[in-house]
């Protein structure tokens, strides 16, 4: 029995009603409106998620978090479905494990997930995903210009993938859509969940659906303001700061040599908390903590990218900046 949030309210509102339900055979009580995912996490039950992020509204598209609810024909996304009274939830039934395995396998069969982090690697192993059984990789990837509802003939010998060249059209971040799992997070962060810039949207349909500016114009021709919030929420490395990308290309990116220093952004009076990721005494990436009550992990272009002045050489030394 674990309460997710304290039951004491200081805003004068009526106390929340609580909901009793069963998760994996254990009785749980949570405040009304708590999602199955939050209830599971409070219980210490791991539920894998890919498209979920604490500071964005759930879009429930990846289906990695599905659980089985007694009486429900289909499985249910834990990230968005509130726990209801008397619900009986299984997080590791045969059907759940099968769906998770296949979701992970289908993603890994079409997308490069090598930078999607240690959790994903562990889940692929734990659930037994085997992307190779869908055949060898097709020599060319998805056609981003494909019209909705049309695709070329399929022989089935090789498996279609999203393989495509990295898009580098600005100095601040790169887009490698061969790694994109279409989790919608970047669109949400660019849109009404954080930045309200709306520079990108999902375009196309089906397997050819992709993240795009209008008519796929280059970022400098779009509404992008380079806040980098899309990069910060990307779970697979499809969006990457140029500084990190260049170091990785030079085989010089080494997380074990990096330190993280918290500081306050020097630019305006809001005072956002910055985390400076430093390797070899140079800032290689700037983030903000997701649980920070001002930023919720989001920054503007200045805090995110305006750190070059730190690297000004001491007087007398040669200036090696661009």
């Amino acid at each position: 029995m674990a309460a997710v949030r304290p039951m004491t309210r200081t805003d004068g509102a009526f106390p929340e009603r609580s909901v009793r339900a069963t998760i994996d055979g254990r009785a749980v009580t949570v405040p009304e409106g708590t999602t199955i995912l939050a209830a599971c996490r409070a219980e210490g039950t791991e539920v894998p998620t890919l498209c979920f992020l604490e500071n964005l509204a759930p879009v429930n598209v990846c289906r990695a978090c599905v659980v089985e609810v007694e009486g429900s024909r289909a499985l249910v996304p834990a990230c968005s479905r509130p726990l209801e009274a008397d619900m009986v939830v299984s997080t590791r039934s045969e059907r759940v494990d099968h769906s998770r395995r296949m979701v992970l396998e289908l993603l890994a069969s079409s997308v490069d997930m090598s930078l999607a982090g240690p959790d994903l690697e562990r889940w692929l192993e734990e659930y037994g995903a085997d992307p190779a059984r869908h055949g060898p990789l097709a020599p060319t990837g998805a056609d981003r210009q494909a019209r909705a509802g049309r695709h070329g003939s399929v022989a089935g010998e090789a498996r279609a993938t999203l393989d495509q060249p990295v898009t580098i059209d600005n100095e601040l971040y790169v887009r490698d859509y061969s790694r994109c799992i279409l989790c919608y997070k970047c669109v949400e962060a660019c849109g009404d969940q954080a930045q309200h810039t709306f520079a990108i949207a999902v375009a196309g349909r089906g397997f050819d659906a992709h993240i795009a500016t209008e008519f796929d114009v280059a970022l400098p021709d779009s509404a992008c303001v380079y806040c980098g919030n899309c990069v910060a929420v990307c779970p697979t490395g499809a969006l990457m700061f140029k500084s990190e990308y260049d170091l990785r290309q030079a085989d010089d990116w080494d997380a074990s040599r990096q330190t993280v220093t918290d500081t306050i952004c020097p630019y305006c009076g809001v005072g956002c908390t910055l985390e400076l990721h430093v390797q070899d005494n140079r800032i290689v990436k700037v983030t903000s903590p997701m649980d920070h009550e001002v930023t919720h992990g989001h920054l503007c272009v200045k805090g995110r990218f305006g750190f070059d002045f730190v690297h000004v050489p001491p007087p007398g030394a040669e200036d090696t900046r661009r």
């Binding site: 429930n60 598209v61 990846c62 990695a64 279409l182 196309g204 349909r205 659906a209």
Partner: peptide
Amino acid sequence: RDESCGQCVP
């Protein structure tokens, strides 16, 4: 394949 909206992975 043509008519899938593309939203969910399965």
